[in-house]
Every structure is written in structure tokens, then in C-alpha cells.
């Protein structure tokens, strides 16, 4: 809103002070992280035996959990956005549950579900499947804590698709699936990308639920956040290097999220 020069109350000064304080608190730790790492340490950290397996495991598991989240979450988000039923509203609240529940609690809850004596444990065991403390457990924990972010963003994105547009698409010969793919998905795309990025960032940072449900086994269930935790016990500088790498990935994601809405295809193409 451009109001030009307006009268400023002295309270504005106080507001600015508060705002600057908070921004400082948010940014300072990352500045400290960046300036406290000599280049030589970076190289040593990257060559440490914990580093490569943890980074690789983190990338592999988060891409898998993101795929699961997008495949399972997109139809759900579409339903949440288009249904006016009470079931949909209740489901929406249920989906948000992992956002407000501490990750450690999610970890315990997952053990109570898939653990040997958990709710579904005996059934899985009869098929010879044991989930806890495996790579599968890492992925499962990530899906549970991160998918709500995707579903929420995707549902909001789908709400921007006017129902009339879909009716028009249908009258133009599109089946419900074609109308969804050719009209709803492209219109919602920026929001879907933001949701997917948020979910991926959350999965990449997942610590508590993973530690409790999947353990902290190097090369098997030790993702980057867990490797930082382990490194901290032996060598603080190593933990700093690991952290820096994760922070860098986060910054790249943030930039991607900020610019995703501008990624709309420019339709001004030549008449080829």
C-alpha cells in the first residue's frame, strides 16, 4: 500500500526495534555458522567417513518421502479443496496434527504403531516385515512429519481453481481426469511447488521422530541431522561443517520457494 509520507507515531520506533531484534535473532546464528568455519575445516568435514553416507541417505530418503507425499497427498488435497462436507473439514484438522505434535511424540507414536508390540506390528511381522530401525522407518517418519505441509499448501492452491473453469473444461470435451491435469494442476502449480519444497525442507531437517523410530545407525538410518548430533559428541567443528551444508541446502530451497510463483510459463511464444 503506497500512502506516501504519513505521520509517524513514536510507537513506530518501538515496533522497528522489536522487528530488528527478531530478525537479528533469526539471522545471527547462520552468520555465526558461516563465519566460524575455515575452508580447511570444510574439506576435512566433507572427507569425514560419516559425511557422505549421511548426506546420501538424507537425499535418498527425502526424495522418496517427497514422492510418497506428493502421490498420496495430491488427491487428498484436491478433495479437501473441493469438498464442503464435514468429513473433509475434520480430515483437514487430522492432517494438521503432526504439525502441532512434537516430533519426539511422533516417533514414540510410530513405535507404538509399527513396533514389534505395536498396533500393526504383529500383522506386519506375520508377513516377515519389520519396520522400526530400517531405512523404511526413516522414510515413514519423514512422510508423517512433512506431508501436512504439502497437503495444506496444495489444498490452498487448488482452492484457487474456480469450479466454473472445470465445468467449462468438461463442456469442452475433457474427462474429469483430463480437466484436472490440463486445468487444475497447471493453475495450482506454483502453490504445489511451494508445498513440495516446504515438505522436502521439513523432511530433510527431521530429527526427533527419526531418532526414536529409526535409530541412529551410520549408513543405515543416520541422516544428516542425526550425523550432526553424533558429530557434536566427538568434534564440534565437524558438526559445524555438517550444519553448514544442511543450511546451504535450506537456503537454496528458500530461494526456490520464493521464486517458484514466478516460474509460470510465459505463454507469449512465437507462432511456430
Amino acid at each position: 500500500m503506497m500512502l506516501g509520507r504519513t505521520y509517524r507515531s513514536p510507537m513506530v520506533g518501538l515496533g522497528v526495534l522489536f522487528g530488528v531484534t527478531l530478525v537479528g535473532l533469526l539471522v545471527l546464528p547462520f552468520v555465526a555458522l558461516a563465519v566460524s568455519t575455515p575452508v580447511a575445516d570444510l574439506r576435512a568435514g566433507a572427507e569425514h567417513p560419516l559425511f557422505a553416507p549421511a548426506l546420501w541417505l538424507s537425499l535418498r530418503t527425502t526424495l522418496m518421502s517427497l514422492s510418497i507425499t506428493v502421490v498420496l497427498g495430491t488427491p487428498l488435497a484436491w478433495w479437501l479443496a473441493s469438498s464442503r462436507s464435514r468429513t473433509a473439514r475434520v480430515t483437514e484438522v487430522l492432517v494438521d496434527l503432526p504439525i502441532v505434535i512434537p516430533p519426539a511424540v511422533v516417533g514414540v507414536a510410530l513405535l507404538e504403531t509399527f513396533g514389534r508390540r505395536g498396533l500393526a506390528g504383529p500383522l506386519l511381522e506375520s508377513f516377515g516385515v519389520s519396520v522400526p530401525f530400517t531405512g523404511g522407518a526413516v522414510v515413514l517418519a519423514q512422510v508423517v512429519v512433512s506431508s501436512p505441509f504439502f497437503v495444506q499448501a496444495a489444498a490452498n492452491a487448488f482452492r484457487k481453481v474456480e469450479p466454473d473453469m472445470l465445468i467449462v473444461a468438461r463442456t469442452l470435451g475433457a474427462s474429469p481426469v483430463v480437466a484436472f491435469v490440463r486445468v487444475a494442476l497447471p493453475i495450482a502449480r506454483p502453490g504445489l511447488l511451494v508445498g513440495a519444497s516446504l515438505a522436502w525442507a521439513r523432511a530433510l531437517g527431521e530429527f526427533g521422530a527419526t531418532l526414536l523410530f529409526a535409530g541412529n545407525m551410520p549408513g543405515r538410518t543416520q541422516t544428516m541431522p542425526l550425523a550432526i548430533f553424533s558429530a557434536l559428541e566427538s568434534d564440534v567443528r565437524l558438526a559445524v561443517v555438517f550444519s553448514l551444508v544442511l543450511a546451504a541446502v535450506g537456503v537454496v530451497l528458500l530461494v526456490a520457494i520464493r521464486f517458484a510463483p514466478m516460474l509460470r510459463r510465459s505463454p507469449a511464444r512465437g507462432a511456430s
Partner: peptide, 18 residues
């Protein structure tokens, strides 16, 4: 709908923005 051969122009026109 897709087999009715009915043309529909809704309020606000419903043009596809993308």
C-alpha cells in the same frame, strides 16, 4: 458433461489463465 455438445460461458468467462 463432455459428451453433451453443450457450450458453456460462465459468469466471469472461466478462461484458463495459464
Amino acid at each position: 458433461i463432455e459428451h453433451r455438445r453443450v457450450g458453456y460461458v460462465p459468469q466471469g468467462y472461466g478462461l484458463f489463465p495459464h
